[in-house]
């Protein structure tokens, strides 16, 4: 009941709200909500800025899922190969990154990229001037606005998010690898298959369900990144780096509040994720039946 009341009802309500023109006045009293029909959606879908935001979100999610999966899988395979002691050390290290709350993780990365005393700024300053100039066109990085241009901003955000999410993939893949019969891999090796072929022909097909679920979960998580972005951008002022979650939040809560319009954006985000979720639920149910 609680779950239904607190999650399904708001879900219905956000859809209902998205069809109204809601501002501060509606929030205060018992004033009727002015009906807006599809106006909010028309306004958003017709807005070129929304299309930019949507493109940013999709590109960001795609890049992050891909990087997280590749890095996570590689680390998972690595953990499976390492000796017992080494594997424990690496796994603990990886878990530490995972355990870090999103907010402190983002704050630390922001400090690393601080434009005066940050370690990364120092590293780039330490590059030979000629090399730095040839690569980036300037040699002095002090005061460089790491978070001002969308390109560097999204690169750093990607770094932060991948750093935070690859451990989960690595640990899950490792758990899956433990279930692959050693004889199968041995047989493949005897038959002369290299690591590349062994992975694609044996490991990957066996672990396909694991990979499927990991991809779906990562997609969902990366689509709605909020905390890290909020921290790195220092709030919601910088429109050039908006993605759907933060866009919806900013429209609804920065003055003047437009709850209806924000809801419409939230509905669009939800629909995208529900589509991905449908895939996830089908996978899990199929496995429950198969098990």
């Amino acid at each position: 009941m609680i779950i239904g009341g607190l999650l399904l009802w708001p879900l219905a309500q956000v859809a209902w709200m998205s069809l109204h023109d809601l501002g501060l006045r509606q929030l205060r009293g018992d004033q009727p909500w002015p009906w807006a029909g599809a106006d909010n959606y028309l306004e958003i879908l017709g807005d070129p800025f929304f299309r930019t935001v949507l493109r940013n979100t999709v590109l960001f999610a795609a890049a992050n899922v891909l990087l997280t999966m590749v890095l996570g899988t590689l680390v998972g395979l690595l953990l499976n190969r390492l000796g017992r002691r080494m594997a424990t050390v690496v796994a603990s290290a990886v878990l530490l990154a995972w355990a870090t709350p999103a907010i402190t993780g983002a704050i630390v990365w922001k400090w690393l990229f601080d434009d005066t005393s940050g370690l990364v700024t120092w590293l780039f300053n330490a590059l030979p001037d000629g090399l730095s100039r040839a690569l980036f066109g300037h040699a002095d990085w002090t005061g460089y606005g790491w978070f001002n241009s969308p390109l560097t901003f999204f690169t750093i955000l990607t770094l932060v998010v991948v750093w935070h999410s690859f451990p989960f993939v690595a640990v899950s893949v490792l758990a899956g690898l433990k279930s692959v019969p050693a004889e199968l891999l041995e047989a493949a090796r005897v038959d002369g298959a290299g690591p590349w072929r062994t992975f694609w022909q044996i490991t990957f097909p066996l672990l396909r369900p694991v990979f499927g679920i990991l991809v779906v979960l990562s997609t969902i998580w990366d689509f709605k990144v909020f905390t890290q972005q909020f921290v790195l951008a220092g709030g919601t002022q910088d429109r050039s780096t908006y993605m759907l979650a933060i866009y919806s939040y900013a429209v609804a809560f920065s003055p003047p509040p437009k709850y209806g319009l924000g809801s419409a954006i939230a509905v669009i985000l939800t629909l995208i994720l529900l589509a991905v979720t449908a895939v996830y639920v089908r996978m899990v149910l199929r496995q429950e039946e198969g098990a």
Binding site: V14, K224, Y249, A252, A266, V267, T270, L273
Partner: peptide, 8 residues
């Protein structure tokens, strides 16, 4: 899987 961010 519902994005909490959408329910704010």
């Amino acid at each position: 899987m519902v994005p909490l961010e959408a329910l704010v």
